[in-house]
């Protein structure tokens, strides 16, 4: 409960800062300085963190696999779950990044009577996938504010997303899906006692912050319209490095924007870095070819060895005299 409280408090602080800064007339800070700063922190922080990971050696293949590895020709192998080639690894990574394959294998253990019983647990996979895909599509749709002329595929995506034309302006299906996903992920942590026990401030904060972004976005679209002309002028100003302070975009937009900036700036320091990290997971991105190739540990200390051949060279005469058998005369 304490962790959830701290996260809620942090969200409240962000809202207060946004509202306070707007009413104090610091719109320039909120709409120009902070967005650029947040983007810089995001990009530099992200790259720095990945470079730090690049310095850790990954000497061995970790065969934490879910299928039979390539061995004798008559043993049926599983090329996707236990790949031995680059193509197989690309296939496995694709399934992992786009379909969360390893989460699909999530199981649940219960004690029935005296014995543990394992069952499949697909809800986390389902809502996790729903959430991530929706977030991606929403972010891509936002390109309509940043591109002029708007690229055709951005409009196409929006048209597909709003296909059912529910309400006016159209409800985007990804918005509903995002909220459904977030709600599940949040209640999973907040309600299940075991998960609440292991949930930290960052776990709640990540969910609440993205919920805040989504809620303010939906409020703008369906209840308190923002002046999108001014928003687009602002966003185009950012990307052409000639930003102007917008007038009358409304408090909801200010909160939306500050939430997004907070998300960007916090991203490189948080568990959200799994976005980059998933590509560097050794159990996923290394082919299991331990039986085909020799992998030498890069930090093996140079050991001074004296091989039998050298030994024989050294003592050949004496061994010959003593009548011992030799490999080389």
């Amino acid at each position: 409960m304490k962790n959830l409280g701290i996260s809620l408090f942090a969200i409240a602080v962000l809202v207060t800062v946004s509202v306070g800064a707007t009413s104090a007339g610091w719109s320039g800070l909120l709409t120009i300085v902070i967005p650029y700063a947040a983007l810089a922190v995001f990009l530099i922080g992200f790259v720095t963190r990945v470079f730090r990971w690049t310095k850790s050696p990954v000497p061995f293949r970790i065969p934490a696999t879910c299928g039979q590895q390539a061995s004798l020709p008559w043993i049926r192998r599983n090329p996707l779950d236990c790949p031995s080639s680059l193509a197989g690894v690309i296939g496995r990574m694709f399934m992992e990044v786009f379909l969360f394959r390893s989460l699909f294998r999530n199981t649940e253990m219960e004690i029935a009577g005296q014995r543990p019983v394992y069952g499949s647990a697909k809800w986390l996979w389902f809502f996790g996938l729903l959430f991530h895909w929706s977030l991606l599509i929403i972010v891509v749709r936002h390109l309509r504010f940043f591109l002029e002329p708007i690229a055709a595929w951005v409009n196409t995506l929006a048209a597909i997303d709003g296909f059912f034309e529910i309400g006016s302006p159209t409800l985007y299906l990804t918005d509903a899906a995002l909220l459904a996903g977030l709600t599940f992920l949040f209640f999973r942590r907040a309600v299940a006692p075991r998960l609440r026990y292991i949930s930290l401030v960052t776990d709640y904060f990540a969910l609440l912050l993205i919920m805040g972004v989504a809620t303010t976005g939906l409020l703008m679209r369906h209840f308190f319209p923002a002046d999108l002309l001014a928003v687009k002028n602002l966003a185009l100003g950012w990307v052409t490095f000639a930003p102007t302070i917008p007038k009358g975009v409304g408090p909801v937009f200010s909160i939306h924007l500050l939430f997004v900036c907070a998300l960007l700036a916090w991203f490189p320091f948080s568990k959200l870095m799994h976005m980059g990290g998933v590509f560097l997971s050794p159990t996923r991105n290394l082919a299991n070819d331990n039986r085909m190739n020799r992998h030498v540990n890069p930090w093996n200390a140079p050991v001074k060895v004296h091989t039998y051949e050298e030994y024989e060279d050294e003592f050949r005469d004496k061994m010959k005299l003593a009548g011992l058998p030799l490999e080389k005369e």
């Binding site: 990009l43 940043f146 591109l147 002029e148 002309l229 002028n233 990307v239 000639a242």
Partner: peptide
Amino acid sequence: LIAVTFPFWYGRGKTVSP
């Protein structure tokens, strides 16, 4: 980096008037 900064490349050298 190129993907994330795509809008900056797209808008490079343009001055867009409302």
